[in-house]
Amino acid sequence: MEAARIYQRIKDRFGEHVLEISDHQPDPFIVIDPASIEEVGSFMRSDPELALDCLSNESGVDYKDRIEVVYHLFSYSKRHGAVLKVKLPRENPTVATLENIWKSANWMEREIFDLLGVIFEGHSDLRRILMPEDWPGFPLRKDFVEPTEYHGISTVRESPIIRLDPKKK
């Protein structure tokens, strides 16, 4: 099924919970109300016409005025895919976890929490995955300022290039 028809099917079913259908090229996407993401997700997985059985990618993007969580779904049996998005406020970004629908969401949501600070409600094991547990802030946010040291280890390094000055003896 083409992306546009998939999105129309979701629109027919969920109506006002679909905030926007974008025919943006090359990958069109659909924006869902964050409050109903779990409902939409389980419909997309269980509906026999859609059968989107694989959450292939989940990523977070900081747009300075909002944070978006992007879900790339895929169906092995129907060979079609869909892109879902939720837009969250930058202060206190919270959305329900999709871990109970697609197991692969567990680790990918941990990564988004770790790097962008999105809280996934109902997640079974929401803790940092890539950064150290006591790391300050969320590195992939656009306003993140890297600390100059971490436990006494400097994060700044002088350039290893030695410039030879012929005048200097």
Binding site: S56, N57, S59, V61, D62, K103, S104, N106, W107, M108, E111, L140
Partner: peptide, 16 residues
């Protein structure tokens, strides 16, 4: 680039 995300095979495999 505004944002780049790589979803790799090993990351998924570790989750299981």
């Amino acid at each position: 680039p505004w944002r780049v995300h790589v979803r790799t095979g090993s990351f998924a495999a570790m989750g299981i």
